[in-house]
Write a protein that binds this DNA or RNA. Structure first.
Lengths: 348, 348
DNA sequence: GGCACCCGCACAATCGATGTTGCAATATAA
DNA sequence: TTATATTGCAACATCGATTGTGCGGGTGCC
């Protein structure tokens, strides 16, 4: 009854009087195809259960060249977008009888590559890569090893990818920021404080570049122009973001009219900065964040957010994997989460 | 040069004129002990690199009965405490040359058990279990399979465990909440609104019960009593927490003097509730949360938090694993993060 | 009665590594 | 010169599963 030791199909074979191959067939469900008597199969299955048998997946994997493991590589765990992605990925994987292996690589391209290689050494069945720093290199390695792979969030031209419609999302978010701008004040004209700034992200990466494009488009549609200094793609590092927002504030001599935080990491730093400014300075300040964080809805300031549909991204990624050999790019529209006017919004 | 196909040590053996066993020894570093000429070893290593060889870890695992995989089971990904834990776990695992496999089981005991069994089928080398719903059952299965395991956050009497000093942390947090209570108002006496309430968690679980004990101790130390209705251990479900806070508010006819949120999930719901209350109702309301969330520092309300030292928890867990056969219980003191008075705290 | 055929299963090869054993060839000792 | 050690490596068994092949016995058919 109790699985005291590890049993193998050979133990079961001995105790059941059958051969190992019969046991194998009985247990993995191929017994019908192998013309094993139903009674024999059932007897073996019952015995295996009684002995607490569980298959050795390394042995199976060695034989079949599959492992049941599916990898997901992402930049970090403690970021709501990626942890939501992990959650969805886990659900999808387990629903398909696969075992999810999720590894964070700190936006470090070398770490990414070495992790890919590590995972391949385990004969993972598929690899999902979210927010990669170097998609092409990863894809090259995977293709060389014939490993099915999909990119999420950051696409790759050489492999199937699923991304959010960053441009549209960014445009809508920018429009929302514009809509909640404080009434135009002539005093600020020309100081730069009348403008909206986009902060964070890496312009060399696809996702950021599309978001920047969306931001620009909205700016041009509404104001007829978008200055280069309005886009501050300073990466994802909290320290850098903090420094940039400070510098911006210093340069302008005050808060700008609005801000587009291009990642949760940056958003958090913006809030940290804001939490040290006196209240009056924040009146009429219009804030948006690309990516969703539930706490964003619970802040003193109204915050507009763009929520990526993580479940959908993961689902579509899995679908892409199932159609072989495509380099399709699937785009999923994001969800715009507008700050609703709140009782507490302003006290004045 | 390019790893076009998967190579094995046999390919390398053929191409190098050596035998597979020599190749194996050369590549895994045991060649000195096996009296292989240095020149031979180096030649093989160079060839392997050139061919882009990488070991098949399933084959190695089958032979050695180890896999290089270490499991971490936790309730959910999208919770800052657990995602911090994932992050630390990943770092520690990779520093030791192991591959982390992190799986969320939704606080579902059956899901936990089946995940444990799945992981064991992969011959994982060790299992870490954080916030388990049913530690004893898990431990029993692991012991039967002789799998080294450690519990984090929720301890198990039968296995090594690392936990935060929940009682002290809760006491300190409660004291902080008491310290920031609004001045005593005789009008509220006897309404229940003069009291502090603990919301969330599961009193049957060790962590919660210690936190409740700490809460009680602080209450008794300061007020000479703690009523049973002050502890509302309603679990971790957002919906339930939301319902309970509403019910409390209705029962009291207003906000209580303070609240101790016993988990981030509950904290989030409390904030959601608060964000719909008019500002004046929140004056002097004193809020604390067991577990840390960076956004907690950025809210309109001052929030005290207790931060578990995730890195330390993980490190100690790994240490425990290395001393064999202990059922030691290691306690790590948490970090108290007091809300600092802020410019924006009140406007009045 | 002889042949073909199907049923139910066992045998054995195989996946890719590890590690023990043993065998030549050379070096050292007697 | 023969006996003994040592060096350097190849052969082979093994881990636990999967899967192609084949064999003995029973049935059906002519």
């Amino acid at each position: 009854m109790k699985p005291t030791q590890k049993h193998t199909i050979y133990d079961i074979a001995t105790r059941s009087g059958a051969s190992a191959s019969t046991v194998s067939a009985a247990l993995n469900g191929t017994w019908k195809a192998r013309r094993i008597k139903e009674a024999t199969a059932l007897r073996i299955i019952a015995l295996a259960r009684e002995m607490g048998y569980s298959v050795n997946l390394q042995a199976r994997g060695l034989r079949t060249a599959r492992s049941g493991l599916v990898g997901l590589i992402l930049p970090e765990h403690n970021n709501r977008f990626f942890s939501d992605l992990s959650q969805s990925f886990t659900l999808e994987a387990r629903a398909r009888g696969q075992c999810p292996v999720i590894i964070a690589t700190a936006r470090n391209p070398e770490e990414e590559l070495s992790t890919v290689r590590d995972l391949m050494a385990y004969s993972i069945d598929a690899l999902f890569v979210a927010g990669a720093a170097d998609p092409q290199h990863i894809s090259k390695i995977c293709r060389a090893a014939q490993l099915p792979h999909v990119f999420i969030d950051q696409p790759c031209p050489d492999a199937p990818s699923v991304i959010t419609d960053n441009e549209t999302g960014a445009r809508q978010l920018t429009e929302a920021i514009i809509d909640t701008l404080a009434p135009h004040s002539p005093a600020l004209e020309g100081t730069g404080r009348e403008k909206i700034y986009l902060l964070g992200g890496d312009a060399r990466l696809h996702a950021s570049s599309r978001r920047i494009a969306g931001f620009r488009a909205a700016m041009i549609a509404h104001f007829g122009r978008c200055d280069d200094d309005q886009v501050i793609a300073c990466g994802y590092e909290p320290q850098t973001a903090q420094a940039e927002i400070r510098a911006l504030h210093a340069r302008l001599g005050g808060m700008p009219a609005g801000l587009f935080a291009n990642s949760l990491n940056v958003f958090e730093e913006v809030l940290r900065f804001l939490s040290r400014r006196p209240e009056p300075e924040l009146r009429g300040f219009s804030l948006g964040c690309f990516d969703y964080e539930p706490y964003g809805e619970l802040l003193r300031l109204p915050v507009h957010m763009v929520r990526q549909r993580h479940r959908e991204l993961v689902r579509r990624a899995w679908e892409l994997l199932e159609e072989p050999g495509s380099t399709e790019l699937v785009t999923v529209p994001p969800e715009l989460c507008l700050a609703r006017p709140r009782v507490l919004r302003y006290e004045g």
